[in-house]
Amino acid sequence: MVNFVNLIRNEWMKLMQRKSTWIMSIILIIAVFSIFGVLKWDYSHREESVGPNTTEQRLQQQINTYEAQKSEADPSSLDYKYAVEQIELAQYRLDEGLAPAEVGSFWHVMNTSANFFSLIVLFVIIVASGILAHEFQKGTIKLLAIRPATRTKLLYSKYVTVLLFSVAIALLLLVSSLVASLIYFPYDSYTHLTWNGESVSEWPAIFWILQSYLYAMVNVVVMGTIAFVIGALFRSSGLAIGITMFFSFATLPVMMMLRKYEWAKYILFSHVEFSMHLSQPFVDVTPLFSLMVILMYLVIFHALMYTSFKKRDIAV
């Protein structure tokens, strides 16, 4: 009976009325400005590196390095493919006169801003853990649940709000990084290149940034969902934050430990660091395969949470 959009408006209002939401946003902005400031200081004090100092020389050196790697690698290996890609891209830049993003240039710094996603993951875990659990801990769930809105709608209005918050805080990161980079670093035009195995394509620089952000968002959504599900199952925000943070920290070690096994590619741990698909390929899986595995796990988590939340009595 009740408009689902109204429920989301309510959740958003409650989130915005909480002090913690604003504190997190301010911390993010301060972090961006101060770390970019440190980067600027660092780049301006760096010793002039020994070696080639024109762009062409550097690209040529890069080609030589990867040629050497290519000749040593087995042609079916990932290293070989990676070397070929790097050679093609560097050659294209030389031919077309397209400069790479120099360290300390505007777009280079913008791309490093994706590293702040570790902070965003933390904030989204905090919000997702509390959004339902707080209603139980404070007892407000009673007045919320006795309305003409089914429990399914209540639950999913909160989940959608967590997703909206993730997008909003990622946009905040994008905007504050843009502003900080414009203030601190010289603007340089840059064209991003990709290699699909046969040819090189050119992309506007902003696509490069958005791609890094989108890939990083996968991790945010997975961690946010885990926190939300645990918060809904145990109705305690502290527990949800704790367990999800543990998951988050355990990801890399577990992934390293298990990567030698064939079945490791079917477990969630191998895929939550989705951004790895952007750097040197880590495991022998495609981004699409990663997304399918992640989706499968998310569906299982949702099914667990949904059945539990619908069935259990509210006795707080």
């Binding site: 009740v2 109204n6 309510n10 209002m13 409650k14 404070k138 919320l144 309305r147 003409p148």
Partner: peptide, 21 residues
């Protein structure tokens, strides 16, 4: 009556009013 204590009384009522027609 456990209400959202970090919001004003009016915002609380707005919140619940949105849940009815």
């Amino acid at each position: 009556p456990e209400l959202y204590d970090y919001m004003s009384g009016y915002k609380n009522l707005i919140h619940f009013s949105r849940m009815h027609k």
